[in-house]
Computed example of a mutant assay.
Amino acid sequence: MDFQVPIRIKPLDPLITHQDKLLLIGSCFTEHIGRNLEEAKFNVLQNPSGILFDPIGVCNSLVAYMENKQYAAGDLFELNEAWHSWMHHSRFSHPSAGQALAAINESQQQAHDFLKQADWLLITLGSSFVYKLKENGQPVVNCHKAPAQEFTKHLSTIEEIVTMLDGTIYRLFQFNPKLKIIFTISPVRHIRDGVTENNRSKARLIEAVHHLVNKLDRLYYFPAYELVIDVLRDYRFYDIDMVHPNYQATQFVLEHFKASCTDETARLIIEEVKRIALARRHRPFNPASQQHRQFLHSTMNKARELMELYPWIDFTEEMAYFESEWSDSTGSGFSSKQ
């Protein structure tokens, strides 16, 4: 008896490797994927402008990265004793306008340089709803708790979404001819818009993205939304807010992502990285015991072997931690011959 709807995910061609550079941009679900890939030692840059939800915000941010736009004081506004940018998440907000600008422009430069060399761009779209300032019609990516009456809310049409994404993709392929793009739709429910409105919003994103994937080469679709909504389809896979997928659901999506989007060597490396990460989190009953010293010795040697076998994987931080633990337990430096 089947308890899940079967889903067949066509593997990427080519598959992602640890030698690739991946830029991730979009909704909060992007950060779940990005954080996991980062922990698995992939070369990742995620959300240089902070969390973005709608296609216009994503496209405007990507254009700003390509142009290496540097923001000025006039691009900021003050609210609730902090300076903010309408084009950036509140993690860039700061009581000092100068410090807010410095963080924004440093991230812009990093995104420009990374995107120029990236092999993959993963775009996770969360909503078709766009918020614009009433005073000038400027789209905003974050309302920064400003009064609701300062904004208009617009549900983008499929045509508007396709036009915006199509133009941005054309520029991206000119900017970086080797770039490949993966689209996903966030399974996070935007219930504050209303259940029916959320479904209309998601449907427009899905239709627009599939139109582009079917039209253009080097575009792919990964069904994160379908994995949660249609395969798991149960509230036990959501957090208490009934909106955000929980840890189990996120891991389920990530396992499918790794299986269909990464190559065999990458998957082997991921498992080795997990073992070393678990070893780092291990807390011994007796740190000075011979058993613990042997554990540290074997783990350090394993990390060193992996770095020699895969020189593009960096275990410097882990090695420093284990060597520090070794010194504390033995009073001497580590040698692979010990």
Rank of each mutant, 00 (worst) to 15 (best):
A64K: 10
I185P: 02
T299N: 04
S332V: 06
L212S: 04
V63D: 10
N142F: 13
V44H: 04
R200M: 13
M242C: 13
R283V: 15
L121P: 10
E38A: 09
A111E: 06
L115A: 03
S335D: 13
D314R: 08
L165H: 13
T163E: 11
L15G: 02
P11M: 07
E31T: 06
L125W: 02
V213N: 05
M319T: 07
D75S: 09
A103N: 13
F334P: 06
S335M: 02
L172K: 13
P14N: 08
I185E: 03
V273F: 04
F114N: 07
A118R: 09
P187T: 05
T168L: 03
Q108K: 11
P187W: 11
E106I: 00
A288H: 14
L12R: 10
P14W: 01
E305L: 12
I161N: 00
D217G: 03
E160M: 14
H154Y: 14
Q248S: 15
R204I: 05
M164F: 07
D230T: 09
K337R: 12
C261L: 00
S85W: 03
N301M: 15
A111T: 02
I56D: 08
L254E: 01
K180H: 08
V209L: 04
Q251L: 12
H210A: 01
M164C: 14
S260P: 01
V228S: 05
P147R: 05
K21A: 13
S336W: 10
S107K: 06
H18C: 08
D166G: 04
E317D: 13
L122G: 12
D230V: 11
H154Q: 15
S61D: 07
Q117Y: 04
P48N: 07
G126E: 05
D241E: 06
V63T: 08
L23K: 09
R233E: 11
Q109C: 07
E160R: 04
Y235L: 05
F175H: 15
I104K: 07
T163L: 11
P287M: 04
I169T: 13
C59N: 09
W83F: 13
H244D: 08
A259F: 06
F77L: 08
T316I: 10
A82F: 02
N36F: 11
H282E: 12
H292L: 05
R236T: 09
S336L: 09
I33S: 07
H244L: 12
K202L: 00
T330F: 10
T30K: 08
V140R: 01
M1F: 03
R236E: 09
E78R: 12
R304D: 15
K178C: 03
K202A: 02
S127F: 04
N105K: 14
Y247S: 07
Q248Y: 11
I206D: 07
L309R: 15
T196F: 14
L268T: 11
I191C: 09
T157S: 14
